[in-house]
């Protein structure tokens, strides 16, 4: 059923607003949780439980001086943070938060749009998002930023391959690239994590690598590269990169939920709530991993990507293909 253009615009506006609010509180959640795990309290002064902390951070960032280094490539330096932020927001358009419902007599589907190339669009948006970090690093005119940008390029190319291969099993089971169809296929059978445990593990770990978070945060390794690709950035533009990291974390969690954990489906509670609960659990895992794992050494990072995850994902793909091809899937 076609929706009115106005419905789509309103839906998009609400989605983006919710996403950005959730992002702000993910940041707070991370700081509080990291504090707890490390035996301290975390930010708790601004408002009750520190709930006003995100607002305070934003105000601080906005009032910083907005400078551009002389050696930087002026145009690309400005564009890079924007690219990094826009890409994860684009992915939001195809992630299903629920089935369809009726609001004020209008038929409303609880996803931006249902594309027959949905999953590929998510990968395309992710690879565009990586350009934000790479171009930011290269355009800064700073050697630490340059090394950070080059590391981003190497790391993302290495892990993107395994990531793409790890979801092919899911595609074979659901016989569709549309994320809506993938969730429906899981409602008909069961969560794909049960059929694709290896795919799930590879996807989630490469997902952590794709978001450049500890233990895969070599592009911004502070002990060797100051702040990597973001060294020359400050104020609002730096906030853009920080924002992109958290938005990517949310997008990877949402994609994992959609592909492997049954998406929005669940008993009793409303569908979007189930979706949020599952995403929340994965975000906590993200933070937990950051608090627990030390950073990998660079050569080990590359070895892990090419010699462990790539063969694992390929093997998973082969086995799934044989099982589906022989007709055991039904």
């Amino acid at each position: 059923m076609q929706e009115a253009a106005l419905t789509i615009i309103v839906k998009g506006a609400i989605l983006v607003f919710l996403f950005l609010t959730i992002f702000a509180y993910t940041m707070l959640l991370e700081r509080r949780l990291l504090g707890r795990i490390q035996g301290r309290r975390g930010p708790n002064r601004a408002g009750p439980f520190g709930l006003m902390q995100p607002a305070a951070d934003v105000v601080k960032m906005l009032f910083k001086e907005d400078f551009t280094p002389k050696a930087a490539n002026q145009v690309v330096f400005q564009i890079a943070p924007i690219v990094a932020v826009v890409a994860p927001i684009l992915t939001l358009a195809i992630i299903p938060f629920g089935g369809s419902t009726t609001i004020f007599g209008h038929h409303v589907t609880l996803y931006g749009t249902d594309l027959n190339i949905g999953l590929l669009l998510a990968f395309a948006a992710a690879s565009m998002g990586h350009y934000g970090l790479m171009l930011g690093g290269f355009a800064s005119g700073n050697k630490y930023a340059l090394i950070g940008g080059a590391r981003t390029a190497a790391q993302l190319i290495s892990y993107e391959v395994s990531m793409a291969l790890s979801v092919v099993g899911v595609l074979m089971l659901s016989e569709s690239l549309s994320l809506v169809d993938i969730v429906k296929a899981q409602q008909d059978t069961t969560w794909f994590i049960l059929f694709q445990p290896v795919g799930f593990v590879v996807f989630f770990i490469t997902g952590i690598a794709e978001t450049n978070r500890t233990p895969f945060d070599l592009p911004e390794a502070e002990s060797e590269l100051v702040a990597g690709y973001a060294t020359e950035y400050g104020g609002t533009k730096y906030a853009g990169f920080a924002m992109a990291e958290y938005l990517n974390m949310l997008v990877v969690s949402a994609m994992t939920v959609t592909l492997f954990l049954g998406g929005y489906s669940g008993p009793w509670l409303p569908e979007p709530l189930w979706f949020l609960i599952k995403v929340f659990v994965l975000v906590v895992v993200f933070i937990w991993v950051r608090a627990t794992m030390p950073r990998l050494r660079y050569d080990r990072l590359m070895k892990l990507g090419w010699k462990v995850f790539l063969p694992l994902a390929t093997l998973n793909l082969l086995v799934t293909a044989i099982v589906v091809g022989l007709g055991f899937a039904h």
Binding site: I117, L120, L121, F123, A124, S127, M128, H130, Y131, M134, L135, G137, F138, L146, G149, A150, A153, A154, L156, I157, E160
Partner: peptide
């Protein structure tokens, strides 16, 4: 269209940039 973005704009130009960086 999507393959164009993933393969050409995504992977191949990334490699160009990687070489340029080195």
């Amino acid at each position: 269209a999507v393959i164009q973005v993933i393969v050409y704009a995504g992977a191949i130009v990334t490699l160009f940039l990687f070489v340029l960086a080195y």
